[in-house]
Write a protein that binds this DNA or RNA. Structure first.
Length: 631
RNA sequence: GCCGGUGUAGCUCAGUGGUAGAGCACACGACUCAUAAUCGUGCUGUCCGGAGUUCAACUCUCCGCACCGGCACCA
């Protein structure tokens, strides 16, 4: 029996899961189920990554120990997966013994490979990022670009992994195995990274406490990614080297969202090379979800209402919509209106109604499933198309084209609807035509049975409902035509996808104004003295010219009149303001900031702006004389 | 600025060197077994713009525009 090992990332447990996590997990679930129904021995892994300074900090801010916090959060993930019908075989927590033991073995092996060395690291460090900035990346103001807080000059003794050594081997991997990274767009990006050179990476932290200690130096904690990536082997029992590990590793697919491909497609394979383990076969990245065209954002309250949509349309409709409407690999725009349209058109009208009408006809005219005694026109077409669908489905699945996969099944569903129409079964009630009627109904049911098998990876609950209504007590996953037995008593057939009235929906939607209050998540910094504050010289100025900076997308070169003089300031606001709207604006400018050169342009100060998801200039509430002090 | 991608019917997208397709939506018709479902027919397009190669380009080449990623940049 072929094995198939598929993984999602272990999601970082410093917040609740969102639709993006659900998307990854549902896609991986579809693959896992597809391979299971085709007879493979499948192992499907998902889980949570529970270590690192961020979790420690989040836990502390909520008044819990990190372990307590993780223990609270893990069930939120598992409950969601249960609700979404995720068929994972394991839910790995990095705080589990299984993982900790595996990591010890992994780190020991890595250490013994000779590619780990101890280095003194002196450099600029961002605590929330848990990372050092390489020399060429240090911002001139020594502020973390993501967290907007000052970098700390930290001198740490760290262990490093000789990633640089693996550049050529990785390049060879990419050329020998062109499908190692899917889709090609991601592969190209990573090739760029590889070709521009790799630096060794530090794999430990001595300043962080919440994590796994290095087996060869208890003073150090494994860096979160070094702790997390090997979960793919620790989950299989790598530490005891058992049969399970050897039968499932290497993984067939590591599935993830596009932002973490670098860790999976560069660092992870390099580490595996170092310890002499086989590499995963494919790194598969999907795009991000937007909602009605806007990026998801906690702070702006833009989120996908999974609970609401699942409540209205059902889990399978949610799964179906995500897999059917988005082309996997690209970003996808989640639009409740489209979900609604898909639900009614595809699920209720095409599939649900087909099952219902066939069962209705059968119940009205027969006591049980009749035998196909009387072949006729179109029968072969239905049978042939069913078989062709099985083949094309397989091709699409291999290419991660869930949308085409589902579309190909729907071609068959529509064909069966047409079959009912063409044969006008409902007219064949006379004794002499009844055997033909029975045959047609048998064919319809058999097609529906096979369709339910083909659909089971995507919408498992529906598949079961279909088979139950057909009268099968145990799920029959045989896709050979004719496997359906005659004489089975069918059920009455309640609609499996009752139509949803849009007007009702609009009402309920307006009834729950669930707007999150926009707020910044950055914590208040440490206190400074009043004299510290007084050191700042803030003045009112007016922008008299603004032009783009050569070679930079975000920068504008501004001339600001502050009364006595004109200052040239470079500001990273080009994405939010055009020159026209800026000229004539009064702004607050820091005039005693030491000058800096950015992109060969001198900047003699800094314009204040609220900078969160959007950037908004700070301006005086009423016009004031230029050069006025701000305090 | 560099690298890559995308731009086709109202919407979501497929597609080929010979003058364009699917689903949804829309209109009309058929049917009445079925969840106002199904089936048929029809409709709309400067296939982003421009130049070039070719007997012929939406499909190839070049230039440009727009949007989206990645990298650089964010005092």
């Amino acid at each position: 029996m072929k094995t198939y090992y598929i993984t999602t990332p272990i999601y970082y447990a410093n917040g609740e899961p969102h639709a993006g996590h659900a998307y990854t997990t549902i896609a991986a679930d579809a693959l896992a189920r597809y391979h299971r129904v085709n007879g493979d021995d499948v192992f499907y892994l998902t889980g949570v990554d529970e270590h690192g300074a961020n979790i420690d900090k989040t836990a502390e801010s909520k008044g819990y120990s990190p372990q307590e916090y993780c223990d609270m959060l893990a069930p939120i993930f598992t409950n969601l997966w249960k609700r979404l019908n995720i068929s994972n075989d394991i839910f790995l927590r990095t705080t589990s013994d299984l993982h900790k033991r595996g990591i010890h073995k992994f780190l020991t092996a890595l250490y013994e490979s000779g590619d780990v060395y101890k280095g003194h690291y002196e450099g600029y460090y961002c605590r929330p990022c848990e990372r050092f900035f390489p020399d060429k990346e240090i911002p001139e103001d020594k502020t973390c670009p993501d967290h907007k807080i000052p970098l700390e000059l930290v001198k740490e003794e760290n262990y490093f992994f000789r990633l640089s050594k693996y550049q050529d081997k990785l390049l060879k991997l990419y050329s020998d195995q062109p499908d190692f990274v899917y889709p090609d767009s991601r592969r190209n990006e990573l090739l760029n990274v590889l070709e521009s050179g790799l630096e060794d990476i530090s794999i430990s932290r001595s300043s962080v406490s919440w994590g796994i200690t290095l087996p060869f130096d208890p003073e150090h904690i494994a860096y979160v990614w070094i702790d997390a990536l090997p979960n793919y082997i620790t989950a299989l029992g790598y530490d005891i080297d058992d049969q399970k590990f050897h039968s499932y590793w290497p993984a067939n697919v590591h599935m993830m969202a596009k932002e973490i491909t670098r860790f999976h497609a560069i660092i992870w394979p390099a580490m595996l090379m170092a310890i002499g383990l086989p590499l995963p076969k494919q790194i598969v990245a999907h795009g991000w979800l937007t909602k009605d065209g806007e990026a998801l954002s906690k702070t702006r309250g833009i989120f996908i209402d999974m609970d609401g949509d699942i409540e209205t349309y059902g889990v399978d409709a949610f799964r179906y919509y995500l897999l059917r409407e988005f082309s996997f690999g690209n970003d996808g725009d989640y639009r409740p209106a489209r979900l609604h349209a898909r639900y009614n058109a595809d699920l209720a009208n095409d599939l649900g109604n087909l099952l219902n009408r066939v069962l209705g006809l059968l119940n009205k005219n027969f006591d049980a499933i009749p035998s196909p005694t009387t072949p006729g026109e179109f029968d072969d077409e239905i049978k042939t198309l069913t078989e062709e669908t099985i083949t094309s489905l397989d091709e699409h699945i291999k290419a991660f084209a869930f949308d085409s996969a589902l579309e190909s099944i729907w071609v068959l569903i529509r064909r069966v609807n047409r079959y009912v129409q063409q044969t006008e079964v409902w007219t064949l009630t006379k004794p002499e035509t009844k055997p033909r009627m029975g045959t047609i109904l048998y064919n319809c049911l058999e097609a529906l049975r096979i369709i339910s098998v083909l659909l089971s990876p995507f919408i498992p609950e529906t598949s079961e409902k279909i088979q139950l209504q057909i009268g099968l007590k145990n799920f029959d996953s045989d896709t050979n035509w004719g496997n359906l037995q005659e004489g089975i008593l069918v059920s009455k057939g309640e609609p499996i996808f009752p139509r949803v009235d849009l007007k009702k929906e609009e009402k309920t939607e307006t009834m729950k104004p669930k707007q999150a209050k926009p707020k910044s998540k950055k914590k208040i910094s440490e206190n400074i003295s009043f004299s510290d504050f007084q050191k700042l010289d803030l003045r009112i100025g007016i922008i008299i010219s603004a032009e783009p900076v050569e070679g930079a997308d975000r920068l504008l070169k501004l001339q600001v009149d502050i009364g006595d003089e004109t200052r040239q300031v470079v500001a990273g606001i080009a994405e939010h303001y055009t020159s026209d709207t800026l000229i004539g604006q009064q702004v607050v400018i820091v005039v005693n900031l030491e000058p800096a050169t950015i992109r060969n342009v001198e900047s003699q100060g800094m314009i204040l702006a609220a900078s969160g998801e959007s950037v908004v200039l700070v301006t005086p509430e009423a016009e004031v004389p230029l050069g006025t002090e701000v305090r």
